[in-house]
Design a binder for these strands. Structure first.
Length: 474
DNA sequence: AGTCGGTTCGG
DNA sequence: CGAACCGAC
């Protein structure tokens, strides 16, 4: 394509940033005018895969993206409905000849791209798609036989050996100025959305959205906490995780940039062994994210069934009362309830608590992991289909390289290991504020722990045994 | 990215 | 008699 007088669209999707954005970079490089567009969804009320917290974060990100574009002399053009139809009609209105976008590797994203590709061909338009959501695409990390990996450790070994692309140059003024983003000439669009668009209302308060806040979090984490990540990340009351999951989910930061910067820290000669181990532990977490994207790419059926065919006939129980108690955080297991209430109040849950609450749902209550998977998607700001499914199947013991079914976390001993003084529990379950912390780590033998706090809904030791029997008989 | 129940070992 | 270790699930 020649650069002269070429108008193109950049379709923003889950890449809500200007920095190191692959499709946006090439759109700017290969055209003279880039029209930035985002297509809003039109559903209303309940949604299987999202909810108010994540939609609210999205609204904040769009507002921030619009402001960042305005600083370059442009603005975000918002349209709605079927992306293929909306993009084609916007291209027709503006005389754009091509649509640039970053691929969304989840099944829904792939479907939309397929429709766009087929409709675009009959409209005299071109599209240019780029890989941007992960450091490596699923097809870049395969066994020597060309098969997808099904076990994490060999996957991660192969992943590390794949050559890494270099980062895109920081955007030059000329690529992002008003010649590329001609604000005055942009077509009209919808106003920036708020939750009323989907007939939702907000409950609780979420982390700050937008590229600037995300970059601040990334730089803060890389400047120091990453060096203690291995020792502290599992402690519930230490805020020692990276807190970057929602930023990767919405593409507020580039996974390549995060990876490159973390690897660069390893070159620092002043590091001691535990600091090196911490950086490597964090890199391993990034690779888990890539592993789950690859699994969902190669095995999209995991959204419906257990990855491991051996466990597709587990008789998961239906118990609406128990499910409701789990959802609202009133199971009588302090650590489980604290995690669930953190989720309800903030749209976030500490990773250790995600495992514990998930194992509690599947191994203590014997409820279907798909119920928990859906609930997490509806509540989590960082809800990512691939990682969420991978995590749930891991916890349920049904997944690729999952926890063996007999590895069952004990919610009482987990809290004594990872919240010894009960600080996390007391923060999120205020009824328990005055309970001596030692009492939080064992089943109460003497009536409720506190007024207004329920007795445990099940006996962990007994349910653990039931679970072992249920799986062993498969 | 387990827990449990059993055994061994040292004070 | 508790901590450390070990195999089984």
């Amino acid at each position: 394509m020649t650069r002269s007088e070429q108008i193109v669209l950049h379709w923003f999707r889950r890449d809500l940033r200007l920095t190191d954005n692959t499709a946006l970079h090439f759109a700017c490089e290969q055209s003279t005018q880039v029209i930035p567009v985002y297509i809003l969804s039109t559903w209303s009320g309940e949604h299987r895969f999202t909810g108010p917290m994540r939609q609210d974060f999205l609204c904040g990100c769009l507002k921030s993206l619009n402001a960042n574009l305005a600083a370059k002399g442009s603005r975000l053009v918002l349209r709605e409905g079927d992306p293929a139809a909306a993009l084609i009609s916007l291209a027709r209105e503006t005389g754009a000849k091509a649509i640039y976008y970053n691929r969304d590797p989840d099944p829904h994203g792939r479907l939309v791209e397929k429709r766009l590709a087929s409709e675009i061909a009959t409209n005299g338009l071109r599209s240019f798609a780029f890989d941007d959501v992960t450091v490596h695409t699923p097809s870049e990390v395969l066994t020597v036989a060309g098969q997808p990996y099904r076990i994490f450790t060999p996957y991660s070994r192969a992943w590390r050996l794949v050559p890494k692309k270099s980062l895109l140059p920081p955007p030059r003024i000329s690529e992002l100025d008003s010649r590329n983003f001609p604000g005055g000439k942009l077509p009209n669009g919808l106003p920036l959305p708020d939750l009323s668009r989907w007939a939702l209302s907000k409950e609780g308060s979420i982390i700050e959205p937008g590229e600037r806040a995300a970059r601040r979090r990334m730089n803060a984490f890389l400047s120091e906490p990453i060096l203690r990540y291995a020792q502290l990340r599992d402690l519930a009351s230490e805020e020692a995780t990276s807190r970057l999951s929602q930023d990767l989910r919405f593409g507020l930061i580039s996974p390549r940039e995060l990876h490159t910067k973390a690897v660069a820290l390893l070159e620092n000669p002043g590091l001691d062994a535990s600091e090196i181990r911490s950086i490597q532990t964090f890199l391993t977490e990034l690779i888990w994210r890539e592993f789950y994207f690859a699994l969902l790419w190669h095995y999209p059926e995991v959204l419906e069934v257990e990855f491991n065919p051996k466990f597709r006939r587990i008789p998961w129980v239906t118990n609406n009362e128990a499910l409701a108690r789990w959802k609202e955080g009133t199971t009588g297991f302090p650590f489980v309830d604290a995690g669930m209430r953190q989720l309800l109040a903030t749209g976030f849950m500490h990773n250790r608590l995600r495992m514990i609450t998930a194992m509690f749902l599947t191994k203590d209550l014997h409820l279907d992991w798909r119920e928990g998977e859906m609930f997490f998607m509806q509540k989590l700001v960082d809800g990512e289909i691939a990682s969420n499914n991978g995590g749930w199947q891991w916890s349920a013991g049904t997944g690729a390289d999952a926890a063996p079914y007999f590895r069952i976390q004990n919610p009482w001993s987990q809290s004594s290991r990872f919240d010894p003084e009960g600080r996390f529990i007391k923060r999120w379950v205020p009824e328990l504020r005055d309970v001596p912390f030692a009492s939080l780590h064992q089943p109460p033998w003497n009536g409720p722990l506190a007024r207004g706090y329920p007795m445990p809904i099940v006996d962990h030791a007994a349910e653990r045994q039931k679970c072992l029997d249920m799986f062993a008989s498969r």
